[in-house]
Design a protein around this nucleic acid. Sequence first.
DNA 1: GTCCATGTTCTTTA
DNA 2: CTAAAGAACATGGA
Length: 267
Amino acid sequence: MPELPEVQTVVTTLSSHVVGKKIRKVLHVRRDMITPDGFDFAAAIKGRTIESLTRRGKRIVFALDDANRFFIHLGMSGKLTAESAKAPILPHTHLIVDLGQSRQLRFRDPRRFGEIRWLGPTVGDEKMGPEPLVMRASQLAAKLKKTKRAIKNALMDQNVIAGLGNIYVDESLFAAGINPLTLASDLDEDAIRRLTKSIKSTLRRAIRHRGSTLRDYVDANGAAGRFKRLHRVYGRKGEPCAKCKTPIERIVLGGRSTCFCPRCQPL
DNA sequence: GTCCATGTTCTTTA
DNA sequence: CTAAAGAACATGGA
């Protein structure tokens, strides 16, 4: 579920439920979802007030009133919701926090690829790439010239650019007319400028439509995203390209399915 | 039973 | 040594 647009939508919809709220009680924690190993997360957050909720890449960052921070990463199947204390507790719920007024913050993640990481007073993002929505083409160029991988694989790397995943890399490359197999270091200045713009416009449009729900992604209020039907290549193998009607192709790159238009994105 | 999945990290290979 | 490719993680749906 969770690439930048979905994570941003969760942050937006969750904010009003948690910012300024005090953590009254930690009702449930699955300890092996917590990093670092063995850290007493419940004790660290109990009684604290949540001062802000922000996003960095795909991380949902909670800042507490004692200047400590933690983040929740949704992995593949994570859902972070604010619900009534009376709502049934679904299977694979790994964190339940009482925020008062019969509201609970809940984290559910069947596949358990997600993570709750205690940061303490640090920011902990120094290795991460730039934020796509505010980055400049020169920042992306500096990262891409250093790697000799296919552009698809480079853009999937959170240390190159933060927040993209399989859907939005494919969609952005289509919008920019760049073949996913192109060597990252082979892209010229013009192509990187085009790519930067395509990434931004693709993500902004996806956020406007509240993200993509492929199977079961929902925001903090349980609402699905509407962007899937606007995908132009992802999950559209064999369908005619929106621009030129050539059938969309699917290949495997970096172990991930990769969809593109062979005519609009020539090598 | 098989294959596939919105992600990351550890291991193996070149 | 480093960078890139591959395997592994855990669950559920088609």
